[in-house]
Nucleic acid binder design. Structure first.
Ligand code: MN
Ligand code: MN
Ligand code: ZN
Ligand code: ZN
Lengths: 165, 165
DNA sequence: TTTATATTAATAATCATTATAAATTAAAAA
DNA sequence: TTTTTAATTTATAATGATTATTAATATAAA
């Protein structure tokens, strides 16, 4: 059902680049693939990998993530919360997807649409900058939190109506 | 000559929010204004502030930066180099400007153009996400480094022509 | 002036990440 | 197969950025 990145693909990519897919690396890759919608930190990945391979070391996870970032299997992203998070790059997608970060609940939604084509052209023409990649995150309020706020506003109004005559 | 943020503006803003502009805070704000094109880290700001007020403490700089971020006087940004950088928000500009990060030389160029209007509309319509702010950074090769690369390619070709007959 | 509050400096503590060194594993050579 | 070499890993120490703590100082209120 998925056109996405598979373990076999990644194994080939590593071999082509002169690396081997050790059991530790395989366990790390599997955790990433099993959670591809998430944006896990190194520590979170480490905890999940330990369930499969309890003997793995944190430094190995960091080294593996660095390698996977180098090979563009994952993208390292930062949402201004003081640590790096890792995002599996979709196999088909030429461009990196975008993010919607909710300022209320902290949720992160993914946007796969290719929205920056025109913008990149402007940047290349006007600034003579050769674009290779991008990072785009919108900060705002997710639909759930907008609803919650509306409901709260209704409750507040009712409460005001009963206390003040 | 500048429609930008001034010390007086910031003093007012602090007072409105119930803070005072202490000498330490003033020194920190001045350093930020004197380097508004840069993207200084807390440590770099601390070093510059120490020239004006050698007795200032690093924690005070951090606290001041946190306050200024809260008041939207500065934006806290991260370029995946492991630390936070601070960017003075232009007074007039409603939207946060964009960045061009060169993967060769590490330089950061600013893009003031409002490029995301249409994109934000799509996000609001399709994802029902209420956009408040954004972060957009392009990764690529700056014009200088493109030139350097071209020149190097010419030199390489010449060298190959003289060694191999 | 006395008292309360805000702010600061100095420093310790924490958290994420990287470096180091010894041990283990896998590949290559003999 | 044994020996040697290189790659990889684990455990742990070190580092670097940021945050928390605490006692001192400055400012405002009573
Ligand atoms: Mn993502
Ligand atoms: Mn900037
Ligand atoms: Zn939300
Ligand atoms: Zn460059």
């Amino acid at each position: 059902m998925s056109t996405g990145t598979t373990l076999a693909n990644i194994r080939n990519l590593l071999h082509q680049s002169g690396f081997k897919l050790t059991p530790q690396r395989e366990a790390t890759v599997l955790v990433l693939l099993e959670n591809e919608k998430d944006h896990l930190s190194a520590e979170e990945i480490y905890m999940l990998v330990k369930k499969k391979s309890p003997e793995i070391g944190l430094a190995t996870v960091y080294r593996t993530l660095e390698m996977l970032t180098e090979l563009k299997v994952v993208d390292k992203v930062s949402f201004n919360d003081g640590l790096s998070r890792y995002d599996v790059r979709k196999e088909g997608a030429k461009h990196f997807h975008h993010h919607l970060l909710c300022l209320e609940c902290g949720s992160i939604e993914e946007v796969e649409d290719d929205l920056l084509g025109d913008v990149e052209l402007i940047v290349e023409k006007k600034y003579h900058f050769l674009v290779k990649d991008h990072r785009l995150t919108f900060h705002g309020i997710c639909s759930k939190c907008q609803l919650k706020k509306k409901e709260q506003a209704v409750l507040d109004k009712e409460a005001a109506a009963t206390t003040l005559p």
